[in-house]
């Protein structure tokens, strides 16, 4: 067997290796192909004599174009490697599937590491990850619940809600589900929702994370006012002016925009006579009952 032929034949044979049964005997082959290198010899060992040579010729004919051959081998390589990896993942899933579901810290770690590897386990429900670990449905369903909760509270908060409040709302809805939901889970679900282009976004204001579900853009001034409102839930124009040192016009503009976008509401009832601007998304201390925000209405 010349070098060139053996190169192509070798590939052809290697392809077939996985399927060859062990029953065929050894000795006759060893005699014929002693001169060849070991892997090739092992490969040929399993072939009946004449058809072995025929196989080689057929192989040569079959793989005229080396390019095609290479592509096919790479695919094979990939498939094999995938099969191996999939087995590892299956073992891992068998052992830890429940943990991923029940232990938020472990789950969060899992996600972080996937991200570092450049793997998105939530990309598709058809992926290994979703199928074997069963986490796809958990996040996609959470996504649906988040969208619904944001929609239900939008008349009140203008499309901006504190992540903590959102998580509590969703958790309440999931009363029947046995899997706890964490803020991290919400963040992952929202991260996926972004692709749907309705303005879903999480951003940080001060010490809190806010979830936006409308395409409204807020500028720096707005964010700073939101931050100021955290804790007590409101600001006055005078406070903003004093703390930020902005001219009144700038303060007015910012507050006006926030009002117009439905993110703020005015309150003229305070005894001291100062108008207060309240921000539903900044009232993180939950002075609002949750049932009401779900729009179920305690009345009737």
């Amino acid at each position: 067997m010349e070098r060139a032929a053996s190169g192509i034949t070798r590939k052809f044979v290697l392809l077939a290796i996985g399927r060859l049964p062990e029953e065929l005997g050894r000795s006759w082959f060893d005699k014929c192909f002693r001169g060849l290198d070991r892997p090739l010899r092992m490969a040929f060992r399993r072939r009946p004599g004449i058809s072995g040579l025929q196989g080689a010729t057929a192989a040569r004919a079959q793989y005229k174009t080396l390019g095609e051959d290479v592509a096919k081998v790479r695919t094979e390589q990939m498939t094999e490697q995938l099969a191996t990896f999939k087995k590892s993942l299956e073992d891992f899933a068998q052992k830890y599937k429940n943990d991923i579901k029940k232990q938020p810290a472990f789950r969060a770690q899992f996600h972080e590491m996937c991200a570092k590897c450049g793997v998105d386990p939530l990309a598709s429900n058809k992926g290994f990850w979703a199928e074997l670990l069963g986490i796809g449905d958990f996040y996609y369903e959470l996504g649906v619940q988040i969208v619904e909760a944001c929609l239900a509270t939008r008349p009140h908060n203008g499309g901006l809600i504190d992540l903590q409040d959102l998580r509590a709302l969703v958790a309440k809805k999931r009363r029947t589900a046995k899997e706890p939901v964490t803020e991290d889970d919400c963040i992952r679900a929202i991260g996926k929702l972004k692709a749907l282009g309705s303005g879903f976004e999480i951003f940080t204001v001060g010490s809190r994370r806010l979830v936006r579900s409308v395409p409204t853009e807020l500028n720096r001034d707005h964010n700073e006012i939101l931050e100021m409102a955290q804790g007590k839930g409101f600001v006055t124009a005078a406070e903003v002016q004093a703390q930020k040192g902005w001219p009144p016009g700038r303060v007015e503009d910012a507050l006006e925009t926030l009002l117009r976008e439905g993110l703020a509401m005015i309150d003229d009832g305070d005894p001291d006579g100062q108008r207060r601007f309240w921000f539903p998304c900044s009232s993180g201390d939950g002075n609002l009952s949750i049932e009401g925000q779900l729009g179920e209405g305690p009345i009737r």
């Binding site: 598709s124 996040y139 996609y140 996926k192």
Partner: peptide
């Protein structure tokens, strides 16, 4: 209809073996 709403409706109808937002977009 907003794509986000399609996502919710479709998955609610499915009930199980839900699709991801990326699946929907693709």
């Amino acid at each position: 209809m907003a794509l986000v709403d399609v996502y919710c409706f479709f998955n609610r109808a499915r009930g199980t073996e839900l699709i991801s937002p990326d699946d929907l977009l693709q």
